[in-house]
């Protein structure tokens, strides 16, 4: 099967997202298990699909995955969320990331205490 040409000048290529399934060409059993699991995770359950999409959007920003940001932005809209709700979800990710840095300041202070007179 011929592959589409890829721009090697950039680490990220938006069209790579459409080729995600190609990852299954090697280690297909693992890929199948992953995609089955992925689909099950995002199905309606104790949390609604909309809630899961908003969590996905927040996590996408936290891990700074441009593919995931595009996918979950669209998914949130298609589940009925609006940009205010989506922005608040991003702030949740931001707060936790920022808080995670800041709380390490306690470790810093403990270390300083140990070294200081």
């Amino acid at each position: 099967m011929s592959r589409p040409t890829r721009n090697h000048e950039y680490h990220y290529d938006a069209s790579d997202l459409d080729r995600f399934a190609e990852i299954g060409e090697a280690a297909p059993d693992l890929a199948r298990k992953f995609f089955d699991y992925y689909g099950a995770v995002f199905a309606e359950g104790a949390l609604s699909e909309r809630e899961k999409a908003l969590i996905g959007l927040a996590v996408a920003h936290s891990i700074q995955c441009p593919y995931c940001i595009d996918v979950y932005s669209t998914k949130c809209l298609e589940k009925g969320s609006n940009v205010e709700q989506m922005t608040e979800a991003v702030h949740v990710a931001t707060a936790i990331r920022g808080g995670a840095s800041l709380v390490h300041g306690v470790q810093m202070r403990g270390h300083v205490d140990r070294l200081s007179m």
């Binding site: 609604s48 699909e49 909309r50 669209t74 809209l77 298609e78 589940k79 009925g80």
Partner: peptide
């Protein structure tokens, strides 16, 4: 109807909202 280039949300969920 969606305000943009995406599909509508599930009808019953959107009705509740």
């Amino acid at each position: 109807n969606p305000v943009g280039a995406f599909l509508p949300a599930p009808q019953s969920c959107l009705e509740d909202d």
